[in-house]
């Protein structure tokens, strides 16, 4: 199967996922306790006003009509208006918050991949050495430390005590360092462990011995023959990590007072801003599906044996 057909088929497969995502987000609005119309109409609204609001929102229509309307609007970029600010939800999300969170997740992923790969390769090629034991110990620590605690400790050390980096906010590259580390640590630890075990498995295979038997040097064996094969499971983990980072962003953004999607969700939940919560979750879900789509294509590129089915 060629690449183009593969991409088309893989794209086709995202359709049921998208339907599931929109359905979940849509139903959430109806399942959570409380009357959306009552909340939207405000605390002092009388029954008539609430009924009017319900009519305006289309809440009296059958569920499937409402769902179709929701999807139709969403596809056209209309996710309703925020209750808090009355501005369109899409505008709130995409004005700057979306870019900030994606930036944060990308930098976090980059940090995780860079640290994780280097650590994993060192560990695998020097199995059972002091370096290996040390790296795996640090990785275990990285996995176990909660994000929010690590973030606060980093702020305490580098911003408050040493004064090297800003305490909070977003804008310059200095602002990005601590959040990226906070967000990337867990991923780096997982990637390091994954790379190590995957490398060890590959290094023990006959084709590695074949390469040595040809007279290939150690370096080339490790990077060309072993790493390229060992990366396959690592890519999957990286993709999942990226999705996880979107969730992790909620905490990191709160700790570092960054105005991204994560904080927007928290603030909107606190304010009972349903359309905002709905929209933000939908955007995050779509982003996650998109990332997985890209991961699968990358996967296919590095591993020619993968076929859909």
């Amino acid at each position: 199967m060629n690449m183009f057909v593969f991409i088309l088929r893989r794209l086709f497969q995202t359709i049921p996922v998208m339907i599931g995502v929109t359905l979940a987000v849509f139903l959430m609005m109806h399942l959570i306790p409380g009357d959306a119309a009552k909340i939207m109409a405000g605390e002092n609204a009388n029954p008539d006003q609430i009924e009017q609001m319900r009519e305006n929102l289309g809440l009296n229509d059958p569920l499937h009509i409402q769902y179709l309307r929701f999807v139709t609007n969403a596809v056209q970029g209309d996710l309703g208006n925020s209750i808090r600010t009355s501005r369109p939800v899409t505008e709130e999300i995409f004005s700057s918050r979306f870019a900030i969170t994606v930036q944060l997740a990308l930098i976090g992923t980059a940090a995780a991949v860079l640290l994780g790969l280097v650590a994993g390769i060192i560990s695998a090629t020097r199995k059972y050495s002091a370096a290996d034991v040390g790296i795996m110990l640090v990785a275990l620590l990285g996995l176990s430390l909660p994000n929010f605690w690590l973030g606060i400790m980093l702020i305490y050390l580098f911003s408050v005590n040493l004064g090297w980096l800003p305490v909070a906010g977003w804008g310059t590259w200095e602002h990005m360092i601590l959040p990226a580390i906070t967000l990337g640590t867990g991923g780096a630890a997982i990637i390091a462990r994954m790379t190590r075990s995957s490398m060890l498995e590959v290094l023990n295979q006959d084709f590695i011995r074949t390469a040595y038997a040809k007279g290939v040097s150690d370096k080339v064996v490790i990077y060309k023959h072993a790493l390229r094969n060992a990366l396959i499971p690592v890519v999957t983990v990286v993709g999942l990590q990226f999705g996880g980072l979107l969730g992790g962003a909620v905490i990191t953004e709160t700790v570092f007072a960054i105005n991204g999607l994560g904080r927007l969700i928290i603030d909107s939940i606190r304010a009972h801003d349903f359309p905002m919560v709905q929209g933000t979750i939908l955007v995050c879900a779509v982003l996650f599906v998109l990332v997985n789509f890209l991961v699968d294509i990358t996967y296919r590129l590095i591993n020619k044996r993968i076929d859909l089915n």
Partner: peptide, 10 residues
């Protein structure tokens, strides 16, 4: 021995 394992799949 194993012709499936002794050739680099990539």
């Amino acid at each position: 021995q194993d012709p499936y394992a002794s050739l680099n799949p990539r």
